[in-house]
Design a protein around this nucleic acid. Structure first.
Length: 273
DNA sequence: TGTGTCACCTGAGCGC
DNA sequence: TGCGCTCAGGTGACAC
């Protein structure tokens, strides 16, 4: 599932391929992927625009275009944005973009949760998820004191707090479970129950698991590939996610899987208090 | 206002 | 073999 490391890997793989390229034509096979504007306007406004930068904010990919427009892509669960020499014939191809160099950018999305926007830069606030997004955990604006204060102000389960994009940007189910394991914190603990020392451990653990995820070019369980179609390697290094019933890599205790906030959650009952 | 739950969506895996 | 059920999870809408 694309979280911050996966989206960052897609960004890094697409950047050298897209910079300076212009979009010749968009072909839309599933219009509801386009959230703003309508599909017809999206196609018309995108045609002929040149890519100036490829950025990321949380799990959003921000493709900055000439004329002060930004093409915003969210991969959600199974979205893939893949640069290719050919127009994909994949069963789940939802949109494809013909580039001026003869190559294609294919958007494949099995479960069709992915979304796209094309807005002038002064209207990006219309995307609520972008407007309310919390600090980038690998940037300087992620500050321990603010993070601790946010945890202290809520009785919600710490796992649910970390999944909340207004608290920290870019975390999803995989990296939240991994960060909580690394910090030795039980996922059900209320945010306000964490000591400053525990919050500091969690703060560092979040940075660590995300950095490792990026170094390993993302986690591929089934669908995720980068912008060149390559799978990630981080799934081979996970301590808890996807390992319910197996032994803890630290103490050997059987890892427990349960549902928290509607999501599968794996933790070590001995290492995480 | 804060928090929890559910729908959206398709395919894999499992039991019968 | 085929059917039906459950599960996977990011986000917005909704209920309490």
């Amino acid at each position: 599932m694309p979280e911050l490391p996966e989206v960052e890997t897609v960004r890094r793989s697409l950047e050298p391929r897209l910079l300076g390229r212009s979009i010749k034509q968009a072909y839309i096979y599933l219009p509801r992927i386009i959230k703003k504007p309508d599909a017809e306007s999206f196609t018309r406004l995108l045609a002929g625009r040149t890519v100036e930068t490829v950025d990321r904010r949380g799990k959003y990919l921000l493709i900055r275009l000439a004329g002060d427009y930004t093409w915003v892509v969210h991969l959600r669960m199974t979205g893939q944005l893949v640069y290719s020499e050919i127009k994909s014939e994949h069963k789940h191809l939802r949109l494809t973009f013909e580039l001026d160099d003869g190559n294609w950018l294919n958007f494949i999305d099995m479960r069709t949760f992915g979304s796209m926007y094309l807005l002038s830069d002064d209207r990006l606030d219309e995307i609520n998820g972008l407007k309310t997004m919390g600090p980038e955990p690998l940037e300087d604006d992620f500050i321990m004191a603010d993070f601790y204060q946010r945890l202290q102000g809520s009785s919600r389960a710490v796992k649910n707090l970390l999944l909340d994009q207004t608290v920290v940007a870019g975390l999803g189910n995989i990296y939240v479970d991994e960060a909580l394991f690394l910090a030795g914190i039980h996922p059900s603990r209320g945010g306000s129950s964490l000591t400053e020392e525990e919050a500091a451990k969690l703060f560092q653990a979040i940075k660590e698991v995300l950095q490792k995820g990026i170094e390993n070019r993302g986690t591929t369980f089934r669908d995720y590939v980068d912008g060149a179609g390559a799978k990630g390697k981080n799934q081979h290094t996970l301590n808890v996610y996807g390992r319910g019933g197996e032994s803890c890599s630290l103490c050997g205790t059987k890892l427990v899987k349960f549902r928290l906030g509607g999501r599968g959650t794996v933790f070590c009952p001995d290492c995480q208090k």
